[in-house]
Design a protein around this nucleic acid. Sequence first.
DNA 1: TGTACATCAGTGAACGCGCGTTCACTGATGTAC
DNA 2: TGTACATCAGTGAACGCGCGTTCACTGATGTAC
Lengths: 193, 193
Amino acid sequence: MRYPAAETAEKHARILDAAAALFRKSGFSNVSVGEIMRATGLTHGPFYNHFASKEALMAQSIEHASAKALSDIDAATAIDGGMEKYLQGYLSIDHRDSPENGCLMAALGTEIGREAGARSAFTAHLVATIERFRKHLPWGSKKATRAEAIRTLASMVGALVLARAVDDDALSREILRDVRDGLRAGPRSQAGL
Amino acid sequence: MRYPAAETAEKHARILDAAAALFRKSGFSNVSVGEIMRATGLTHGPFYNHFASKEALMAQSIEHASAKALSDIDAATAIDGGMEKYLQGYLSIDHRDSPENGCLMAALGTEIGREAGARSAFTAHLVATIERFRKHLPWGSKKATRAEAIRTLASMVGALVLARAVDDDALSREILRDVRDGLRAGPRSQAGL
DNA sequence: TGTACATCAGTGAACGCGCGTTCACTGATGTAC
DNA sequence: TGTACATCAGTGAACGCGCGTTCACTGATGTAC
């Protein structure tokens, strides 16, 4: 039967929401089209009214999650000291335990390189994230270089990936805490080796 | 037909080699038991003479790759300045482009948390790796704390994951270079913020 | 040392299952008059 | 405003396919005598 036009756009958005959450929680290959559609309260058939294929949905769900993630950073950095809070929140137990609402890179990082469509959407997300980090890293504008933004991001993503992969809660918390402390200490000294 | 006893053990090892390489290259769910067996030159049937299930193979292939990876670190650190070379090699284009022979954590990081058997094998690997890093980080024994080892590892894994996920070769090389430069600079200063 | 036979890793057809995707059908909505 | 009908998102059965796993069978190896 025919449905009100307004509902169609809203269902499209609901499919994207469900896909973005389920993909981050379980990985691309462990989530079926049927599972995503069930999560929106529909049967699997109309999926192809909304998306050309599962692969197309992967790419679009990354764009969808990226827009949300970037606006979260923008909201955080709009207030004073917001970036510091953002960094600490990123390396929190809560974030570790809710991949479905969390960082794309930490949740799907190792799988994205294998999906052509996902890769380019992801690249755009990373470029935008680096730029925001560069502008807003809390240790002052003079030292806040693009290289430092990249190093900070790599630490954060690596820490979350390891903290989630590990079986041992004490070790997992230790990883998050150590990297949090390292960020609080500011950029790497240039007087090392 | 019956086969020489010596061949059986050798085939078991070949299955583990093939699995460890294919899993790192394509991810657990994108590699089938048949594909692994074909890579060893056998048909899929005898797989179950060697392993109880695909899931059991995942866990054992992690142990197998871990043993190899740890002995590589040991070999590197046996010579002077070896650890520095190891760190630079980790963040090289070659390593980025050969996940099948490379770091477990960077290749399967986001998938391991979802596989119970793989998780505990991975945890043992991470514990052993952290300990080796702690002992051998190149900026001198006084500053080489466990926390610094963890921070270094998180940076390296994050950098490789991002460098592989990205579509843009220049950005990918920039990520590797920036994190390499950051490691060369030594541990984070405590005089930051 | 030579012969008879039990062993068991490998073969390849077969299993049930869930996947991504397609399609004939339904029927309230939106539109033409 | 009221009626007739074309539209099209949703339904759910069906498709071919590859997956993990099983199993009756094969036949050279290793062993008992």
